[in-house]
């Protein structure tokens, strides 16, 4: 079995990671399939080499980073809770690096307030995309301070292996205190902006998915409760933690904000 890796980043209790099989066979990646169990197979042939991530917008040094170079940045392991907006959760041992490291390389301008992300979209490789019911390419966004937070990482793999296609190969965002859909997969574009960027699920249903989408057991989704969650591999539901258990680290980012309004 896997050795128990060190617990990093806001985890007060020991987190037992889900199995590699669980993490790689229960995925929301609508470009490949809307069936979580079918994504692994549907994404099997996805070509991710070569891969370039273009970072531009309100920065002094815009740059198109080759994936090979991004892998030269020191990779750390982070064991994070992953809470899906649908009410299930996992514990995932990611590896990757803080997004801040990449942003520091391009030097955001003083006018930059937000970071916008975009997923690769190729209709030929992702034929299910047109049935997804959401507008593609998938886009996401963070406030700059959220993006610069030490818990926010760009993940390049899990369980010590390169990122599996179905989990967002070759590089994806992980923001552990937000619902999983904020963790945009297979990133090709990162743009710093001065206005709040549009996000895919917000465009699809603004009353259900807000820009912030912080994990919050006190603010229900209009169609289901967010008070508890089903940890994959366990049968009994458990209470969902404020900010997914990372309140000590991130609550200050939202001080003074009405989290019911800014859901």
């Amino acid at each position: 079995s896997e050795p128990n890796p060190p617990v990093v980043g806001g985890a007060r209790t020991l987190l037992v990671p889900n199995t590699f099989e669980e993490i790689t066979h229960y995925n929301n990646y609508y470009e490949f399939s809307t069936n979580k169990s079918a994504v692994a197979k549907a994404a099997g042939q996805f070509i991710t080499t070569p891969w370039v991530v273009e970072v531009s917008g309100l920065v002094s040094k815009p740059h198109a980073f080759d994936m090979m170079d991004l892998l030269k940045i020191e990779q750390e392991e982070r064991i994070y809770r992953h809470r899906c907006v649908e009410g299930w959760s996992m514990v995932i041992p990611w590896q990757g690096f803080p997004l801040k490291k990449l942003l520091d390389l391009v030097q955001p301008l003083g006018t930059a307030k937000y970071v916008a992300f975009e997923t690769y979209y190729d209709k030929a490789q992702m034929p299910s995309g047109k049935y997804a019911g959401i507008e593609l390419p998938y886009v996401e966004g963070l406030r700059l301070d959220e993006a610069m937070h030490p818990l926010t990482i760009l993940a390049t793999g899990l369980y010590g292996k390169p990122m599996p296609n179905q989990n967002g190969a070759p590089i994806r965002l992980v923001v552990p205190w937000k619902y999983g859909f904020k963790g945009i997969k297979s990133i090709v574009k990162i743009t710093l902006t001065d206005t709040q960027p549009p996000t895919t699920w917000n465009k699809a249903a603004a009353d259900e998915y807000g820009f912030y989408s912080n994990v919050n057991p006190n603010v229900d989704h209009p169609r289901w409760s967010q008070a508890d969650e089903q940890r994959i591999g366990e049968y009994k539901r458990q209470p969902t933690l404020m900010f997914n258990g990372y309140a000590d680290e991130v609550a200050s980012l939202y001080s003074g904000m009405d989290l019911k309004q800014n859901f």
């Binding site: 099989e21 066979h25 229960y26 979580k36 169990s37 299930w88 089903q230 994959i232």
Partner: peptide, 8 residues
């Protein structure tokens, strides 16, 4: 029955 048998 997959990773999440209950849901399935």
């Amino acid at each position: 029955l997959g990773v999440n048998p209950v849901e399935f």
